[in-house]
């Protein structure tokens, strides 16, 4: 039985622990031993994208040194944090003592759906239950990691996937962007919400908690009955 690490991400850890639990149970269900290093904190992306390189470096160093002491693939339920660890942290830490750990960790990082579909081939077999599910693939996973159909394939295996207009357009979350230019962020959010509503979906799933909090908050504010789930939760619900 293989070992894998869960890098749970700060948002899941604090705001949606049930997503982390779903990940653990899914991965264990796929026959893996899941480990979680309690020395991990955050990938540093909030500070990095806001321009605070030194602060980002400090945080990223903490997490990569924690993860570097572990073994097996590092599974991340977020395309954005996975992209940060795989592509930006090695450059950020290139000139210091954490260059080696950062490079080694980057090579082991796998976004959850990428890991399930590409590495494990663990697409649950045809038990689609007829629920209409829209899928939002977040930008960093999409364009940073090339995650295009993996989430969709997973959704299709457990539900009816409904297409969303302009599915690859940003939802406007953008991390601290949502606080720095909140009106612009909200305008994109409303556009995405309209597209999801027009799709006829009952459930919206995504691969990144940031985008999902943003969209769930917008849907709730608008009084929409559409449920928002991380893809790990949908898969967990359907395989229970």
């Amino acid at each position: 039985m293989g070992v894998c690490q869960l890098f749970v991400t700060c948002l899941v850890d604090a705001l949606a622990p049930e997503v982390g639990r779903a990940c653990v149970e899914l991965l264990e269900g796929a026959g893996l031993e899941v480990q979680f290093s309690e020395d991990q904190t955050c990938c540093g992306q909030p500070a990095y994208n806001a321009g605070y390189r030194d602060q980002a470096r400090r945080v990223a160093a903490q997490t990569v040194s924690a993860l570097d002491r572990t073994e097996g693939p590092i599974v991340v339920p977020s395309g954005s944090c996975a992209d940060m660890l795989a592509h930006h942290v090695p450059a950020l830490l290139a000139d210091g003592p954490h260059a080696g750990p950062a490079r080694r960790v980057a090579a082991r990082v796998r976004e959850l759906t990428q890991f399930l579909v590409d590495d494990l081939g663990a697409v649950p077999a045809g038990t689609a239950d007829g629920r209409r599910v829209a899928c939002h693939v977040s930008c960093h996973g999409l364009r940073g990691l090339g995650i295009r159909d993996q989430p969709g394939r997973l959704v299709e295996s457990v539900a009816d996937r409904v297409p969303v207009r302009d599915a690859e357009e940003c939802c406007g979350f953008g991390g601290l962007f949502s606080l720095e230019l909140p009106e612009v962020s909200a305008a994109s959010m409303r556009r995405k919400i309209r597209a999801v509503e027009e799709s006829g979906a009952e459930i919206l799933v995504g691969t990144d908690l940031g985008c999902l909090l943003h969209l769930a908050g917008g849907l709730h504010r608008a009084g929409s009955p559409i449920r928002v789930l991380h893809i790990a939760q949908l898969l967990r619900e359907s395989t229970r």
């Binding site: 909200a186 908050g217 504010r221």
Partner: peptide, 18 residues
């Protein structure tokens, strides 16, 4: 700036690591 435009789902439980 967040809640000016949308709600925030509160966590349903203590942190994952707990």
């Amino acid at each position: 700036a967040w809640t000016a435009h949308r709600d925030l789902p509160g966590p349903g439980a203590p942190p994952f690591r707990v």
